[in-house]
Amino acid sequence: MNKRRKKITNFSKAAYSMMLPFLIFFIITILIPTIMSLWFSFSQVSDSIDFVGLSNFKAIFKDPLFFKSYYNVFIFMFFSIPITVLLALIFAVLLNKPTIKGRGFFRTVYYLPAVTSIVAVSSVFLTFYNPTGLFNAVVTAFGGQPIPWLTDPFWARVSIIIISIWLNVGYYTVLFLAGLQNISGEIYESADIDGANSFQQFFKITIPMLKPVILMGMILSTINGLGAFEVPNILFKNGFGPESSAVTVGVNLYKTSFEMVDFGKASAISWTMVIVAAILSVIQFIIGGKDNEA
């Protein structure tokens, strides 16, 4: 990639004209609103915008729920991402076998959650989590006790983690499949000759080769997870869950915006999210190194 970079040509005029449509809309609908939201975070917002200094930030830092919401998101990510990655790796390795029939079909169905509305999906899962719903029917069929999915702080978190795994596994599977196809067969063949078994190959070759892809996916998921609010809002009437175990930063932002109608504070919360996301991206850059640029 670096070599190609150097070959990049210098036809500025044409480049500018091709960028122009995007730039116009980017500036009007994204850049200016973003700058305005930064300004909002230092203001009291009503039909006039009055500068109030740091008081929005002081107010959100005083609220224990603000920290709890970050804590919750990191709990969700800590458990959901490794499981998602592992499952996706398994599916990807299996689907990468040329001998398997119907690979395209499996891959397509697995990818469906990535292209459907989260609201629709969560609404259906809500019925599955009912005390007498599908999941408990399965649990009891295997001789287990019915699980209080949405009404116990521990299980409430599990419920959210299950949905987020379900939503993301397909996306990761396809992502990893693409990565696997770039690993040349020769590496495995020489490993075979060295007498490495399948599991050793998986951990010694597959995972290290996929490291940049895995890392990118993890950071992106965490950034998305910060803003997620649909799933908790639909599973729990108030988005809180038992002992506020389901509150994400997104839920807190949503409530501050549209229940409290405090857009100054909401913008302040948003900008803490930007800062956290930026830090995570820097970490990704450092760990991932050059080969994972952007």
Binding site: T34, S37, L253, F263, V274
Partner: peptide, 17 residues
């Protein structure tokens, strides 16, 4: 700028937009 604005949540830019 494109990379940074990807991190700004949609709620924050709703009113300005």
């Amino acid at each position: 700028l494109v990379m940074i604005s990807r991190m700004v949540p949609g709620f924050a830019v709703l009113i300005p937009t």
